[in-house]
């Protein structure tokens, strides 16, 4: 689909806003609908759209495999790390009250980082699965 001019132009117009919307859903999830999972999927969808229009190698340059794989693990570690931070600061595992002097602010901070972890892992996994499927077809077809 590389030569389709309409697709290229429309894709270029859309993708920045999709990524921006993903960030909005991620960080506005506390106040409106959304959260880490949805944001991760939207961010992955933006990059998958990029890969569909401009080709898989271009997307792999944009989001290289090592980074995507690191994201897969990093999100889980961030989530679990927030839990461990709760223990270190004197609470139970995944207790957010202790993360800040004010318990409510601590809750807010904990939720923020946990959602960030969810978003990172989901983006990484979705992208990685897409890369795997698309890359496999490519190597079999020799295209």
């Amino acid at each position: 689909m590389k030569r389709q001019m309409v697709l290229r132009v429309v894709g270029k117009l859309f993708i920045p806003y999709m990524l921006l919307f993903a960030l909005y859903v991620q960080f506005h999830g506390d106040f409106g609908p959304g959260g880490g999972f949805q944001a991760g999927v939207i961010a992955a969808a933006a990059i998958i759209l990029y890969a569909l229009i401009f080709g898989l190698p271009a997307a792999r340059r944009l989001a290289p495999d090592p980074i995507v794989e690191a994201m897969v693990a990093l999100g889980v570690l961030l989530f679990a790390g927030v839990g461990v931070a709760g223990i270190v600061l004197g609470g139970n595992y995944l207790d957010y009250f202790v993360l800040d002097g004010d318990p409510v602010a601590g809750q807010h901070r904990g939720i923020f980082w946990v959602e960030a972890g969810v978003g990172i892992t989901v983006t990484g996994v979705m992208l990685k699965i897409f890369y795997m499927f698309a890359g496999r077809g490519r190597s079999l077809d020799e295209r």
């Binding site: 999830g29 506390d30 409106g32 959260g35 957010y96 409510v104 809750q107 939720i111």
Partner: peptide, 11 residues
């Protein structure tokens, strides 16, 4: 009141 997050689903 407990979490300071208006979206209950997220909380």
């Amino acid at each position: 009141a407990e979490t300071g997050v208006p979206n209950v689903v997220t909380a």
